[in-house]
């Protein structure tokens, strides 16, 4: 990854830690659902503020995705394992989380609680609050992208947090997701050893 690209996807630990604490304050007043609503609107608003994209072919889209030119990979380093399986190599919130554990202490339990709420109400794929922002952003960004005239669709397969916690899509969804991603379960386990997120991309 070039220095410029690294600079662009690096997070701002000062803001990340401040925002995490602010989110905890919101949760104190409004509970996990209030925090979840805030996270979802934050990520959706970000995606909506970014320009729409159109690609003539799937290859053109993949090229833009891997180079970090697409809005969907603006904040993360993405590689592709197959033409439909994308992998985020490192969670964009790692630096902020590390700074939090260094300066504040253990990551507050509310960040995992809100993910449970999200998983039960929206889609089961989040480990903590950061995954909610990340996954919501990705879905909202996909809504702004068309490939060969068709809207891009995204499906979360699995995520791994810095401490090794994993969240894999429900068992009954796995055959369809793996088939669309063109990977096997063994492939998935291999990918999860040293990456942060696995997701499938397709058009209908």
């Amino acid at each position: 990854m070039s220095d410029r690209r690294k600079f662009l996807i690096d997070d701002n630990p000062f803001v990340d830690v401040a925002a995490c604490l602010f989110l905890e304050d919101i949760a104190d007043k409004q509970g996990a659902s209030g925090m979840n609503n805030y996270l979802v609107s934050l990520a959706t608003s970000l995606a909506k503020s970014m320009p729409e994209e159109e690609y003539r072919t799937w290859d053109q889209f993949l090229d833009s995705l891997v180079k970090g030119e697409s809005i969907i990979s603006a904040f993360e380093d993405v590689i592709t394992i197959t033409p439909h399986c994308a992998v985020t190599t490192k969670c964009p919130f790692t630096k902020g989380w590390q700074e939090y554990t260094k300066r504040i202490g253990t990551f507050s339990k509310i960040h995992a609680d809100v993910a449970e709420y999200y998983n039960s109400v929206y889609k089961p794929g989040a480990i903590n609050s950061m995954c909610i922002i990340h996954q919501t952003f990705r879905n909202a960004a996909a809504d702004r992208i068309k490939v060969a005239g068709k809207p891009l669709k995204i499906g979360q397969i699995a995520a791994v947090w810095e401490d090794g916690t994993r969240k894999i899509a429900p068992e009954e969804w796995m055959p369809i997701l793996l088939e669309k991603a063109q990977i096997s379960r063994t492939d998935l386990n291999m990918i999860l050893r040293n990456n942060a997120d696995v997701w499938v991309m397709y058009t209908e």
Partner: peptide
């Protein structure tokens, strides 16, 4: 990412 997200809220807010 979170920093950019927060800034994108400023106009709306």
């Amino acid at each position: 990412m979170l920093d950019v997200a927060l800034v994108s809220l400023i106009q709306d807010m």
